[in-house]
């Protein structure tokens, strides 16, 4: 796990977001054991109390569960996976739409371009950059 902590978002929230992202992409699956709080703190070079707060929140959110004497595990909660996926997709599309708007592209032109690129990428064709 690697997180850039230079941003203004509280660090415990960034840790939770990273877990959500890894769950949504399938990098972390239900039943997977996650690092101990101490180990993750050392790995991320983050204050142990911050990691503790992230884990506590994740338990409340139902993302993970801690089994006494065994460790902390990803929970099998399909709706959280779907919710996170849909959040991520919305964010990605929003970023894209804003970028296109900033370049002055219309809705029609944008969709047309998406269609073209979709076709080209699917057929594995390399397209040179302008």
């Amino acid at each position: 796990m690697n997180i850039d902590f230079s941003t203004s978002i509280p660090i415990y929230l960034q840790i939770i977001e990273e877990f959500k992202r890894q769950i949504a992409t399938g990098a972390l699956k239900p039943g997977d054991k996650v690092p101990s709080q101490r180990e993750l703190a050392a790995q991320l070079k983050v204050n142990a109390n911050t990691v503790q707060r992230a884990y506590r929140e994740m338990e409340i959110l139902g993302l993970v569960e801690t089994l006494r004497g065994q460790g902390t595990f990803i929970r099998q909660v399909q709706e959280i996976v779907e919710e996170t996926r849909s959040e991520m997709l919305t964010d990605l599309v929003d970023d894209f739409v804003r970028s296109m708007q900033a370049l002055g592209l219309s809705r029609e032109k944008t969709l047309e371009l998406v269609g073209v690129r979709f076709q080209e990428l699917q057929s594995g064709k390399e397209v040179e950059e302008k």
């Binding site: 230079s6 941003t7 203004s8 978002i9 509280p10 660090i11 415990y12 204050n47 911050t50 707060r53």
Partner: peptide, 15 residues
Amino acid sequence: NAEDLRTRWGKSIND
């Protein structure tokens, strides 16, 4: 608290 300051000011401690 560092996290509270980040939340309150919307900035990293460094900023």
